[in-house]
Write a protein that binds this DNA or RNA. Sequence first.
DNA 1: AGTGAATATTAAAAGTATGTTACATGATTG
DNA 2: CAATCATGTAACATACTTTTAATATTCACT
Lengths: 226, 226
Amino acid sequence: MKKEKILLVDDEPDIIDLISYNLEKEGYHIKSASNGRDAIDIAKSFMPDLILLDVMMPEMDGIETCVEIRNMEGINSPLIAFLTARGEDYSQIAGFDAGADDYISKPIKPRVLLSRIQALLRRRAGTESSTSVETVGSVTIDKEKYLVVLDGEEMNLPKKEFELLALLMSKPGRVFTREIILNSIWGNDVVVGDRTIDVHIRKLREKIGTKIIKTVKGVGYKFEAK
Amino acid sequence: MKKEKILLVDDEPDIIDLISYNLEKEGYHIKSASNGRDAIDIAKSFMPDLILLDVMMPEMDGIETCVEIRNMEGINSPLIAFLTARGEDYSQIAGFDAGADDYISKPIKPRVLLSRIQALLRRRAGTESSTSVETVGSVTIDKEKYLVVLDGEEMNLPKKEFELLALLMSKPGRVFTREIILNSIWGNDVVVGDRTIDVHIRKLREKIGTKIIKTVKGVGYKFEAK
DNA sequence: AGTGAATATTAAAAGTATGTTACATGATTG
DNA sequence: CAATCATGTAACATACTTTTAATATTCACT
């Protein structure tokens, strides 16, 4: 059985030893770092599935490190869980905002830690990364070139239409609700009318054919794979 | 925006008030119970998305309650998070074993609680999509694609019919009472006449065959597993 | 078998989401 | 500074979905 890679970041050697020991016993592949900088370096080549990050560290604290890792493009967005001493409640909020997936409070109890880690990794089932060129049926899009190829014919779409098409094509067949479309393309806070989506859908259909994008009334739109 | 339903279980009225106030302010739909028994009763009809469960309670403690809810077939396995006083580390393990999804330590800080709840619900949304395809007998439904496949033939159902079918199929053979159907699909406060369900059932039968959904008079409907 | 309550069956009425078109606003370009 | 284009809005049209309401049928019991 292939076990996951975990990067452990804490400035206290005792903690590192304790956790390493327990997780290695379970078959996980462990590397460790004693500060945020090292952690980032190691993460780049180690490509961990999960990073356990102490909040309180010299040099660069956990939250800073977390933000930086989340902003790093070259990395496969690992799960990040914070290790935090009790009473540091503020850090929980900041941590989730920084992009953490969980936080675990010290003192660490090995069995608790293990349960949490397993739960986290289990959840991480359908999270795959994407490439910039994608083909579904007779439609190909190249996100890098902002190009759409339909039956061999290249065409350029306006930004919003392109993004909408790219979104729908990212999961062919899957229905995207209006809410999700708005959040993905316009952003959470931007407010645009409801008809706006319809109009863009209409223009898309005008250009790539009327049958490819299907309406699911009361739910949303989907790209018909076929 | 449709907000989730949360059931709050704690024997201290102060805690109930504090949490209710804060969560309702965020738009969640809250109900509460002061002990495990009541919680189970309420859960049956309320169909919460998440249950916040105090560990220490008279009559029936949180862990017992949790186990019972997990074993209850009629219910759509809600998320369960424990509320626990500091120092009760043993309960963390027992809690996870009992089927908890998270535990949150007291004293409750509203913003922390909110972050956790949001994280939990967000995760569940992601998890559900990986379990979105379900097959029972000759019928397959794909919630992500809003698609029903009957003997190899694809079909699209209107939203309510689809949800109704999905609900019945979620526990094949189990009878869903009208009350539970209403709470699950229409929500707790929406009031629709009793015949409405019948009409939807009829339309479903029209489309997927008359034998698959069975009436249990005086009780409800069930999806015939075969 | 007869009875009453629960469910089925209709068709029509309400209710909504979406499609469509034309137009307003800015930004961009030549 | 026109001309073009991308984007968003408004108003109305359309196509369904959902619900109701009225009537029929079924089913479990005396």
